[in-house]
């Protein structure tokens, strides 16, 4: 039984134009996404900007109202706000944002920022609340003197750790992390990611890890879905995606990971060029006539890919 299941999620934004400001078209930000996240795992959601990965994340937290589809948690569809309230849903599902400065209220002290989710759901006394906040700061490696400071007095990495502490405050089951480290420099990224991993071990939370950085995703995630143009093009375990990529878009993303060793430079370039050539020549095979991603089909029990049926049948035989 999964912790949370997303069924055929669609988020469409109307485009208004003309004199009467009528709806003339729609942006298909998310166009039929289904995935399920198990308890305690890290699920990676990868894609380029505008592929709909953040919108999917926001819909799961309840910040975005889907046009169609369901998000099932504890047997209830939480896209309806009444169900969210009944379940105290946002106690169990929290979110971490990319921009650590603007996402914290500049006029509130760290104590109040971290304590606010506690005040929403718990009925802690003043002393208990303070103890809990101190405990949370300790989890992310910050001192007690952070309590009375304001967000602008911290470095980017410290602020993101405050964001993590805030998200963990209510003991959530799932944390949606929307590009949590892409605004940080590399050494600080590792630090924040390791705090997130430690928290996962200690508290058994699941992460929906939204990122465009395949290196980070490989380090963090057990299962991965690749999104393109509002749909999932390929999903599977870390091994499926990194060692047996099938869709051309996945292969393009993987070939774009920078190679650190100079010795393989020519080899890597040849590989990139081969992938790009294949994409240019066979593009129509991977997308339907409107340029949309094809429906997902099973290749193995864990691996799904959006390819034509005959091709998937061939891949299935190979996998067996």
């Amino acid at each position: 039984m999964s912790l949370i299941e997303v069924h055929d999620l669609e988020v469409h934004y109307p485009i208004r134009s003309g004199f009467w400001n009528r709806v003339t078209d729609e942006v298909l930000a998310v166009d039929g996404v289904s995935l399920s996240i198990e308890a305690g795992e890290t699920y990676g959601l990868v894609g380029e900007s505008g592929s709909g990965k953040s919108t999917t994340g926001k819909s799961i937290v309840g910040l975005e109202k889907p046009t169609h589809g369901q998000v099932i948690y504890k047997g209830k569809d939480i896209t309806k706000s009444a169900n969210r309230q009944k379940l105290d849903y946002n106690q169990d599902v929290q979110m971490i944002f990319q921009d650590s400065l603007s996402s914290l209220n500049p006029r509130k002290r760290i104590e109040d920022i971290i304590a606010e989710p506690l005040r929403n759901f718990g009925k802690l006394s003043k002393d208990e609340e303070k103890l809990r906040v101190l405990q949370l700061l300790d989890i992310v490696g910050l001192d007690a003197d952070a309590l009375y400071k304001y967000p602008h007095q911290f470095s980017g990495g410290q602020r993101q750790r405050i964001g993590v502490a805030r998200a963990v405050a209510t003991n959530p089951k799932l944390i949606v992390a929307d590009e949590p480290v892409s605004a940080l420099d590399l050494s600080v990224q590792a630090q924040v990611l390791n705090f997130m991993k430690k928290i996962q071990r200690d508290f058994n939370v699941s992460y929906l890890f939204i990122s465009h950085d395949l290196g980070v995703v490989r380090h963090m995630c057990d299962n991965i879905a690749i999104m393109h143009r509002g749909r999932i093009v390929e999903m599977g375990t870390r091994d499926d995606i990194y060692n047996h990529p099938m869709h051309i878009y996945t292969r393009r993303l993987l070939s774009a990971i920078p190679e650190t060793s100079v010795a393989h430079r020519e080899e890597a370039r040849a590989k990139r060029e081969a992938v790009e050539k294949e994409f240019q020549e066979n593009q129509q095979r991977y997308y339907d006539k409107d340029g949309k991603v094809l429906p997902l089909l099973d290749v193995t029990s864990t691996h799904k890919v959006a390819l034509p049926a005959d091709e998937v049948a061939k891949l299935q035989r190979e996998a067996d």
């Binding site: 106690q91 944002f97 209220n105 209510t170």
Partner: peptide, 24 residues
């Protein structure tokens, strides 16, 4: 963004306006 954060924390809409939007 911090109002979005407040909403994701699960602060009821009424309190989001009272504590974050109106005050600021």
């Amino acid at each position: 963004d911090y109002v979005r954060t407040a909403r994701s924390k699960g602060v009821p809409v009424k309190d989001v306006f009272k504590h974050h939007v109106f005050r600021n």
